[in-house]
Computed example of a mutant assay.
Amino acid sequence: MTENTVSTAVAVRDNGPGAMVEQYRNDLAMVMPSHVKPDTFVRLAVGVLRRDRNLAQAAQNNPAALMGALMDAAQLGLTPGTEQFYLVPRKQKGRLEIQGIRGYQGEIELIYRAGAVSSVIVEVVRERDTFRYSPGRDERPEHDIDWDVEDRGALRLVYAYAVMKDGATSKVVVLNRAQVMKAKAMSQGSDSAYSPWQKHEEAMWMKTAAHRLTKWVPTSAEYMREQLRAQAEVAAEQRTTVAAGVVPQAPMPESGGSDEDEGPIEGEFVDDEPGQQWPAVAQPPA
């Protein structure tokens, strides 16, 4: 999809970015995961553009950048214009255009969707909080907050870890201010007034830790690829067995087990209303 192609589409459809998104509904739907509803995705994307004049202008300036960001969100199955996937204007060669940025809720969504974890914990530590964690000695951090204090102080640390479905704790990621600021400096457009680093600093600290956590736990794409590969190998082995004239026997259940094999369970993450803060401990629905 080139800039000229998309620009032509905008001109044909009343020169509006919302109309362009509507026109490319089928293209977006083709790359979405099965759990995402194209109508809902498009409606939310159009709504964000209509509510924010800067975004609408940025989309008008470079329609290809808008569609590129929406395609990225669609492929990941994340909701555009929320803390799952930010749509922000940024200056490029003197004019505004749209940039897509994955948020911390998006990082957590991809972890849950893999189906390997029961909960993901991402939280910031402020100056007046008490935080204790010693790798190799402590399984999980101890974080005490005085909820009665009016001001907990400036952001000091951020941490993230996952509890796997077997009860084990993943690697614990802990980042201090210097490490977060280094990540911010490497983020394109982070100094812009439109950047989520300026408007949603705490959320971006959490996104940085959650993103580091994805290196240590399965995420949607890699985990499901492994599951599909394993299923394909089993299916190929069964076809070979049947072709050889051998009827495979059903395995006997282990003592205390179930007669039915339990396959991978699809993790689900329920999104809050746009703009609403998520809890620090994000639990998938029962």
Score class of each variant (00 low, 15 high):
residue 191 D to N: 15
residue 176 N to M: 02
residue 257 G to Q: 02
residue 265 I to A: 10
residue 124 V to A: 04
residue 28 L to M: 07
residue 171 K to E: 06
residue 60 Q to D: 01
residue 231 Q to Y: 04
residue 138 D to E: 08
residue 244 A to M: 02
residue 47 G to Q: 00
residue 71 M to C: 03
residue 124 V to Q: 01
residue 137 R to L: 10
residue 200 H to K: 15
residue 266 E to S: 12
residue 150 E to G: 11
residue 80 P to L: 01
residue 176 N to Q: 00
residue 30 M to H: 11
residue 7 S to C: 06
residue 188 Q to W: 02
residue 43 R to W: 05
residue 108 I to V: 08
residue 106 G to E: 04
residue 22 E to P: 09
residue 172 V to G: 12
residue 31 V to C: 09
residue 204 M to N: 08
residue 252 M to K: 14
residue 62 N to G: 02
residue 183 A to F: 00
residue 77 G to T: 10
residue 51 R to M: 04
residue 125 V to C: 09
residue 60 Q to Y: 14
residue 272 D to N: 15
residue 282 A to F: 15
residue 141 P to V: 01
residue 104 Y to V: 06
residue 19 A to E: 07
residue 231 Q to R: 12
residue 282 A to C: 12
residue 115 G to L: 02
residue 236 A to I: 03
residue 147 W to Q: 13
residue 268 E to P: 09
residue 236 A to E: 13
residue 145 I to M: 04
residue 99 Q to A: 11
residue 32 M to I: 06
residue 76 L to F: 09
residue 91 K to P: 08
residue 153 G to N: 14
residue 266 E to L: 13
residue 99 Q to P: 00
residue 193 A to D: 14
residue 45 A to W: 00
residue 27 D to M: 05
residue 285 P to R: 06
residue 173 V to G: 12
residue 105 Q to K: 08
residue 88 V to Y: 09
residue 203 A to V: 01
residue 247 V to N: 14
residue 107 E to A: 11
residue 17 P to H: 00
residue 209 A to H: 11
residue 228 L to C: 05
residue 106 G to K: 02
residue 108 I to D: 09
residue 240 T to L: 07
residue 194 Y to D: 11
residue 237 E to N: 12
residue 237 E to W: 12
residue 40 T to S: 15
residue 244 A to H: 08
residue 24 Y to R: 09
residue 26 N to G: 10
residue 23 Q to V: 07
residue 26 N to S: 09
residue 259 D to M: 07
residue 25 R to N: 02
residue 171 K to W: 03
residue 210 A to I: 02
residue 81 G to F: 00
residue 242 V to G: 05
residue 236 A to Y: 15
residue 132 R to I: 02
residue 70 L to A: 02
residue 62 N to P: 02
residue 181 M to F: 05
residue 97 E to G: 01
residue 130 T to R: 15
residue 188 Q to D: 11
residue 92 Q to Y: 03
residue 38 P to D: 05
residue 154 A to S: 13
residue 89 P to M: 04
residue 149 V to P: 07
residue 152 R to C: 15
residue 3 E to W: 03
residue 163 V to L: 12
residue 78 L to M: 04
residue 222 E to T: 09
residue 143 H to N: 04
residue 132 R to V: 03
residue 262 E to I: 09
residue 234 V to G: 08
